[in-house]
Every structure is written in C-alpha cells, then in structure tokens.
Amino acid sequence: MREGAREAILGRLRAARRGEDGAAPSDFAVVREKRWPEAERLPRLRRLMEAAHAEFLEATGESWPSAVRDLLVEAGARNVMVGAGSAVEARLAEAWSGLPGGPELLRYDRPVEELKGVLFGSVDAGLTTCEGGLAETGSLVVVPTPEEPRLLSLVPPIHLVLLDPATVRDGLWQLLAEPRFANGMPPNALLISGPSKTADIEQTLAYGVHGPKRLVVVVVPGGATPSRGS
C-alpha cells in the first residue's frame, strides 16, 4: 500500500508537470550582498543576541576558565558538563585542578541512554564550543560531534558557549555555501540565537520554557583552545 502511495502521488505530480516554466534560477543578490565589515560583525551579533536575552562574557585564551568558574559560582551552579575528550575538557580540568570548592566538572562520556537521569536531573550547566557566529541574525553555529553531544546545548538550564570573534561570518547563506556544509551536512547542525523562549501566553516573553534559561556567550579572541586551530 505504501509503495502504491508513492507511485500514485509521484504519478499524479508527473502527469501534471508543466515543463520547466517557473524553474528559472533564482537571483540571490539580496542575500549575497548582506555583508558586514569584520569589525562590525561581533558588535552586531552581540547587540542582536543581547536583545534576545543572551549574556556575554569577555575573556582571553588565558582567563576564560576562571571567568567561567566565577560565573558559575555566582549563578549557584553545582556543576558544569563538558564533552568528554574535548580540548575544552582538558583545559578546564587543568585550570581548575587544585582549586578549592567551585563547580564540579562533569563529562558527557556515555550514550545518552545511560546519562538521561543525570542530564535531566542534576546537571546545572553545559559548556560547548561553536563553529562560529552569524552577524546577520545574531546566531551561534553549533555542530554537535561525538565529543560534544547534541544535548549539552539543550538540556542543562545554563548553556555556555565559547566564541572566537574571528569566526563570526555574515549570514546563514554565506555559511551554508562554505565547503564544510555544501559538501555534506553533518547529522545535526544548529543555529542558536538566545535562550529558550516562548510568547505563547498573551504574547508575553518568558525564557527557559524547555531549553536553557540562560545562554552565556564567552568571547575568547584567538579561541579558547588555540591548539584546535582556530
């Protein structure tokens, strides 16, 4: 029956097909030309994301682990989860080792099936890297990997993202034209433009409806883990 459905549907569509009328190539000039000088990209991204209730933390390659730690302490976070085996994990483990108190460093080191209870129940913050940002819309480009799983940026109430300002591009159209995506999409790629929000009750904005209540962008010029080649 389902095979029949496929043939029936495609058959009707093919029969009605009216040649190449309307199949002319599209003129993408209006999106292609939406560009910003490099110096304006981060400020624009920041302005747009702050308007969407994201927070920004300025740090350096040297200082970001302690900046992140201070923020977590202030937020009362008991812990922060990072991808197991990631460069970020190594850097934090090293920088925080020997420091008394402070948030516990958790690792996303097992399949979600074994981690769901912890992830939903007791992880207060997740920290990830990102591929870059988009100036046009004020978005972070997050591509989950085996080291940095998908739910790190979704389930914990606070999501911290390390952003290298040099990786802020123009817009989604320019991003998707890069070989990284054009030559094969990863299983999951995301734009994240703020904390989770809703306006479903009387058009009134409320944050943290399902995903993170707080999105903190940690700006690290030169990259958080320079060895990663940013």
């Binding site: 989950p144 085996p146 799983p149 299983p187 904390p195």
Partner: peptide, 16 residues
Amino acid sequence: TYVNMISGPRSPGEKD
C-alpha cells in the same frame, strides 16, 4: 531561537 538542521540519525560515535 533555534534553527535545527537534521541530516541523519545518531552517527557512529555520537552519544545522543
């Protein structure tokens, strides 16, 4: 807030 581009299920090595 989210643009979610899905091009496949969990790939080998992915944890979720």
